[in-house]
Simulated scan of single mutants.
Amino acid sequence: MDASQLFLLAWAGLIFWELGQIWLVQIVVYPLFAKVSEAEYVGYHRFYASRIPLPVIGPGFAGFLLPVPLAFFGPVVPLWMSAVNVVAGLIGLLVTVLLEIPRHNRLEQYGKNDATIAELTRFSWPRTLSITTSAAVTMAMLLSVFAMP
Rank of each mutant, 00 (worst) to 15 (best):
G58I: 10
V36I: 15
Y41K: 06
Y41F: 15
L65V: 13
V25E: 05
W23P: 03
L24Y: 13
P59H: 07
L54K: 11
E40W: 01
L32P: 00
V36F: 02
L66Y: 06
Q21D: 13
P59I: 11
Y30G: 02
V68F: 15
R51Q: 09
L24R: 04
S37H: 09
P69H: 14
V42L: 01
K35A: 11
Y44I: 04
L19V: 07
R46L: 03
F61D: 01
E18I: 13
I52W: 00
P31C: 06
L66S: 03
P55Y: 13
A62T: 11
S37T: 14
Q21P: 00
P55R: 09
A62D: 06
L54V: 15
A49S: 15
P69E: 10
G20S: 08
P69L: 14
A34Q: 13
G43Y: 03
A49W: 02
V29S: 05
Y30A: 08
Q26F: 12
W23S: 10
P59W: 07
L54H: 05
F47S: 10
P69A: 13
L65Q: 02
F33W: 07
G63D: 03
K35T: 12
Y30F: 15
Y48I: 08
H45F: 12
P55G: 10
Y44S: 00
L70H: 06
I27Y: 14
A49P: 02
H45D: 00
I22R: 04
K35V: 02
E40K: 07
P67V: 09
L32Y: 13
V42Q: 06
F47P: 00
S37L: 10
V29Q: 11
G43H: 04
W23F: 13
I57G: 08
G43K: 06
P67I: 12
V68Q: 07
V68L: 15
G43D: 06
Y48A: 01
G20W: 09
V25N: 09
L54F: 12
G58K: 00
P55I: 07
F47Y: 12
V68G: 04
F64A: 13
G20Y: 07
E38Y: 07
P55Q: 10
V42K: 08
L19G: 13
P31Q: 06
F33S: 04
P59R: 08
G63A: 09
E40M: 03
L70E: 01
V28M: 15
V36C: 02
A62F: 14
Q21M: 15
P55H: 12
G63L: 03
F47I: 08
Y30V: 10
G60I: 00
Y41A: 10
A34M: 09
V68C: 07
S37R: 12
F33L: 12
L24D: 04
V28R: 12
V29P: 02
R46P: 00
Q21A: 15
S37F: 09
R51I: 05
K35C: 02
V29M: 10
E18C: 14
V36H: 01
Q21R: 11
Q26A: 14
V25W: 13
G60V: 01
Q26R: 12
I57Y: 03
A39P: 04
F64P: 00
Q26V: 08
F64R: 03
F61Y: 14
S37C: 11
L66E: 02
L70W: 08
P67C: 11
L70F: 09
Y44D: 00
V29D: 05
P53Q: 13
W23H: 14
W23D: 09
P59F: 11
Y41P: 03
L19W: 15
P69T: 05
